[in-house]
Design a protein around this nucleic acid. Structure first.
Length: 574
RNA sequence: GCGCCCAUAGCUCAGUCGGAUAGAGCAUCAGAUUCCUAAUCUGGGGGCCAGAGGUUCGAAUCCUCUUGGGCGCACCA
C-alpha cells in the first residue's frame, strides 16, 4: 500500500462524512477524484482535485467545497497542513513520521518494493518478437523485443500472471524457401558446386552450418531426391536451427519466452478448421469475391471467390480472406485460430507488433472480439521504426543481399544495458533514431549511465561508510532533514509509476521515472560539496549518518527495482 | 484514394485516464572538484505546444477539419 492509496481511504472517509451531513449527494460519482503528488513540490506533498471534480454535483463552488473538505482533513494527525489553492486544489503537507514510515516500508519490501501487494488473478499473454524463423534477428526486431519484454515484467510486477509468448510462423511460403535454401547448403556441404545463391533463396552465411549439420545427419540420401521427399523434413530441421539461433540472440538481451507456439502445429491440430466452422455458423465467414485493391496498379489481378471474414462489420476497409485459392490458409486465417488458442489460456492478450503490420490490426481485433464475444481484452501495441545511424548518417540495410545489421552485432558493439535502456527511453508509438556513435560514447549523453551511476554512487557510499565503521540503521530516522524527505517523496512515487506503466502499457515511463529519481539523488549528493553537513557520511555524527545511509540504501533499492523492470543491470561500481 | 502513427525550446524527447507558472537532456553562456565517485551539480537565455474551430470551471492532453512527416493498403508474412 502506497501513501497515495492510504490517502485515498482518508479522502473517502471525509467524503462519506460530507454525504452524512448532506453536503454531498449520496450517489456522487467519485471516480475522477485523484490523489497525486502535485507537479510543483512547493505546493506540498499530496494534492487532490476532489473539490473541483465534485462541486458541480454538489451544486456549490469548488473553493467552498474545498474548504469543507479541508476542515475534515485537518482532523488527521498525520496531515500537517491543508491548503486550498488555485481553482480548488487541496494541498497537504504530511508529518515527517509518514516519510520515515515510508522508508522503512521500502526496506521491508526490498526487491518487492513496487510490486502489487497481491496478484490480480488475471492471466495476461504478451506475444512479442515472433520474427519469422528464417534467419538471425536484426535491428528491426530489437525494439519490439525490448519493449515486449519490459512490458511483460512490468505487468508481472503489477499483479498479472504473465505468459511470454513467441509465435513461430513455420508453415508459410517463407519457411519453404528456407528449406530449399538449407537444401542448397546441404549440397554444398557434401562437396557439390552450388555457384551463386539463386534469386529468391536466402543467401545468408548462417545457413552454411545448417547444411553441414544436415549432411552429417543424413549423409547423401537426399542429394538427388525430388523436393517432396525432403521439403518438410528440411524445413523442420532448418526452423529448429533458426529458432536456436534466435533464442541465443534473445538471450543476449536477457529475453526468455515461456511459450513458443508453432503455426504448423496449429494446422496439424485442425485449429483453423474449427475456427472457420465456428465463424461460418455465426455468419462471420462467407464465400465471396474481393474488390480490386485501390491505390496500387496490379497487372495480374483477377476476381476470385474465397472464404472471407466479415471484418468490415468491425470497421475494416474490406472483408479478409482466410484461405488462398489453392486451399491453404492465409496468414490471417491461421492467425484467427492462433489468437483463439491464446485466448483460451488467458484473460487478456497483448501483441507487440512492428508498425509495418498496422494495416492488419483492425481485422485481427475484429476477429478476436467476435470469437471471444468481447470477453478477452486484446491490445495491439505498435512499435515504430528505428532508424539506425552512425554519426548522423543512415546505416544502410538490405535484406536481399543478406547484409542487414543483426541484433547480435549491435548488442556486442554497445552492450545489453545500453540497447535496452535506449529502446525504452522513447514512447513506443513514435519513431526513434538509434545512433551508434552517440550511444557507444557511453559517457554523458546517455541516460543509462546516469541512472547506473546514481546506483553505483549509493553503493560506494555505503561501502565507504562501512570502512569507517558506520552502518545503515533505521534507529534514528527522526534525524532526517527536509532535503532527505524530498528524496523519499520521489522514491514513494515508484509504485504509482509501475501501476501507470502497466495500465497504459508504456514501459518508457519507468525509464523516465528512474531518470528523475537519479537526478534527485545526484542533486542531493552535490549539496554536500558546498555544505559538508549535508553529506551522507558524517564522522562526527554516526547516528545521523546511519539514518541517511539507511535512506540512501532505499533509494538504491528503488533504482535497482526499476532497472530490473527494464532488464538493465544495477551497477555497483563504475 | 483509404487506414494507422507522429507534430511540444535551435536539436533529441517527457508531460500522470483534462489541472495550478508547459519540463528534462544536448547545444549555448556563467559558475562549483584541498571535501562521501565531477560519468555529477548550480544558475541564465531560449515556447503561438503545427494551424483553425469545438467541448467545460479548466485543453499540449478530448472531438472535428486543415497542413506537414512516417508506415501500410494482394491470396505475401
Amino acid at each position: 500500500m502506497t501513501i497515495f492509496t492510504k490517502f485515498a481511504a482518508y479522502i473517502d472517509d471525509v467524503l462519506d462524512s460530507l454525504v452524512d451531513n448532506n453536503v454531498l449527494p449520496a450517489d456522487i460519482d467519485r471516480r475522477n477524484v485523484t490523489i497525486e503528488p502535485p507537479r510543483d513540490a512547493s505546493h506540498g506533498d499530496v494534492a487532490t482535485n476532489a473539490a473541483m471534480v465534485l462541486s458541480k454535483a454538489a451544486k456549490t463552488n469548488p473553493r467552498q467545497l474545498a474548504e469543507a473538505i479541508a476542515e475534515q482533513l485537518r482532523k488527521f494527525d498525520i496531515i500537517q497542513s491543508v491548503e486550498v489553492a488555485g481553482p480548488g486544489f487541496l494541498n497537504m503537507r504530511l508529518a515527517s513520521q509518514i516519510w520515515q514510515n515510508e522508508i522503512v516500508d521500502i526496506a521491508k519490501l526490498g526487491d518487492d518494493y513496487g510490486r502489487a501487494n497481491q496478484k490480480n488473478g488475471q492471466i495476461i499473454n504478451v506475444e512479442y518478437v515472433s520474427a519469422n524463423p528464417t534467419g538471425p534477428l536484426h535491428m528491426g526486431h530489437c525494439r519490439g523485443a525490448v519493449v515486449g519484454d519490459a512490458l511483460a515484467t512490468i505487468l508481472e510486477y503489477a499483479g498479472y500472471d504473465v505468459i511470454r509468448e513467441y509465435y513461430i510462423n513455420d508453415a508459410g511460403g517463407q519457411v519453404d524457401t528456407l528449406s530449399r535454401s538449407a537444401h542448397l547448403r546441404y549440397l554444398e556441404a557434401l562437396g557439390h558446386a552450388i555457384g551463386d545463391i539463386p534469386e529468391g533463396l536466402y543467401p545468408g552465411d548462417y545457413l552454411i552450418g545448417v547444411g553441414k549439420r544436415l549432411a552429417d545427419k543424413y549423409g547423401d540420401q537426399y542429394v538427388s531426391k525430388p523436393e517432396e521427399d525432403w521439403l518438410i523434413l528440411f524445413r523442420e530441421e532448418a526452423v529448429h536451427d533458426m529458432m536456436d539461433m534466435i533464442r541465443d540472440d534473445l538471450a543476449l538481451l536477457g529475453i526468455k519466452h515461456d511459450v513458443f507456439a508453432s503455426e504448423a502445429a496449429l494446422h496439424i491440430d485442425g485449429k483453423a478448421e474449427k475456427a472457420e466452422a465456428w465463424l461460418r455458423t455465426n455468419d462471420l465467414v462467407y464465400d465471396g469475391v474481393l474488390e480490386k485493391p485501390k491505390g496500387k496498379t496490379l497487372d495480374d489481378w483477377e476476381p476470385v471467390e474465397l472464404p472471407l471474414f466479415r471484418s468490415t462489420q468491425f470497421g475494416d476497409d474490406q472483408d479478409r480472406p482466410i484461405k488462398k485459392l489453392d486451399g491453404k490458409w492465409t496468414y490471417f486465417g491461421a492467425d484467427l485460430a492462433y489468437h483463439y488458442q491464446k485466448s483460451e489460456k488467458a484473460d487478456a492478450l497483448i501483441n507487440i507488433w512492428g508498425a509495418d503490420h498496422a494495416g492488419t490490426v483492425k481485422r485481427i481485433k475484429a476477429a478476436v472480439s467476435a470469437m471471444t464475444k468481447g470477453e478477452t481484452t486484446f491490445d495491439i501495441k505498435l512499435v515504430q521504426m528505428v532508424h539506425l545511424l552512425r554519426d548522423g548518417e543512415p546505416v544502410k540495410m538490405s535484406k536481399r543481399s543478406g547484409s542487414f545489421i543483426t541484433l547480435k552485432d549491435v548488442v556486442e558493439e554497445v552492450g545489453k544495458d545500453v540497447v535496452r535502456f535506449t529502446m525504452l527511453t522513447r514512447k513506443a508509438d513514435a519513431q526513434m533514431d538509434f545512433d551508434f556513435a552517440k550511444v557507444v560514447e557511453a559517457s554523458k549523453d546517455n541516460p543509462v549511465f546516469y541512472v547506473q551511476y546514481a546506483h553505483a554512487r549509493i553503493c560506494s557510499t555505503i561501502r565507504k561508510a562501512q570502512e569507517e565503521g558506520i552502518f545503515p540503521s533505521s534507529d534514528r530516522l527522526d534525524l532526517l532533514e527536509k532535503e532527505e524527505y524530498a528524496l523519499i517523496r520521489e522514491a514513494s512515487n515508484f509504485p504509482r509509476m509501475v501501476e501507470a506503466a502497466a495500465r497504459s502499457r508504456e514501459p518508457h515511463r519507468i525509464a523516465f521515472y528512474l531518470n528523475d529519481l537519479s537526478s534527485a539523488l545526484h542533486s542531493h549528493w552535490n549539496l554536500g560539496n558546498d555544505r559538508p553537513e549535508k553529506r551522507f557520511i558524517l564522522a562526527q555524527d554516526k547516528e545521523k549518518s546511519a539514518a541517511r545511509l539507511f535512506m540512501a540504501a532505499q533509494i538504491g533499492q528503488t533504482l535497482k527495482n526499476g532497472l530490473k523492470l527494464m532488464g538493465v543491470e544495477a551497477a555497483e561500481t563504475m
